[in-house]
Design a protein around this nucleic acid. Sequence first.
DNA 1: AGCCTGATTCGAATGTTATCGAGACAGGGA
DNA 2: TCCCTGTCTCGATAACATTCGAATCAGGCT
Lengths: 121, 121
Amino acid sequence: MSKQLLPVVDVSAVACCPPIAVRPLETPQAEAVAPMFRALGDPVRLRLMSMIASAPETCVCDLTPAFDLSGPTISHHLKVLREAGLVDSERRGTWVWYRVKADAVRRLSALLDIPAMPATG
Amino acid sequence: MSKQLLPVVDVSAVACCPPIAVRPLETPQAEAVAPMFRALGDPVRLRLMSMIASAPETCVCDLTPAFDLSGPTISHHLKVLREAGLVDSERRGTWVWYRVKADAVRRLSALLDIPAMPATG
DNA sequence: AGCCTGATTCGAATGTTATCGAGACAGGGA
DNA sequence: TCCCTGTCTCGATAACATTCGAATCAGGCT
């Protein structure tokens, strides 16, 4: 619960490009980043993402029953998150475990940074 | 170019809910937020958003020629951003001006905050 | 009024996404 | 080995998105 004063913005988080409010995103960067936002742009995936990010690791077997959807559908959404580079998966024995790729998420967060005061005050 | 040390996370930015990594997002919140991410999930809209956010105000007449797309198509994408609550528009005389809704964008950024150290260190 | 330019809405064509059931694959245990 | 459970892939379908040209609306000028 203690406040973290340390690295509020870490360097790797902005490796891609400055926040969108700093200067217009170039087309190639926009094309690289958009799939990540698109992946988060579905309520089911956003909840999956949040469940995965809220724990060090999450088993698919814990994700699926949280939704009123078929197994294949959850699997599909997880694949979209994986292909967007937002999560990693690893099979260990019977179960498959998902982990959030924190750096990728931080990069998105940094991209949305907006200065408290707009340019002209 | 000077570093901003001031309000890194402001309260209103998390009015909706804690960051997705803190605890699993509930369905209603996920459904409220997902359309915003979806709106950002297209390269054209991401660039539009970035152009709008990079200046206090931007005229549609400056946005359209930056793309290899028809006027109606740009207009459609702007509508998606508007309906997602990410930008505001105002007609002043002949032209229509777009402004970013900074609070909404900050809320998204805050939602993606991930602690530097995962729970278990 | 009549016209011109800028922006949006409308309708249609094409492409992409969400979802499912059926089937395949992986690993553990009888 | 055979089966059982968990997860993923495949193929189909229905819903939604992107894009355009044509038409419409809003304001300024002549």
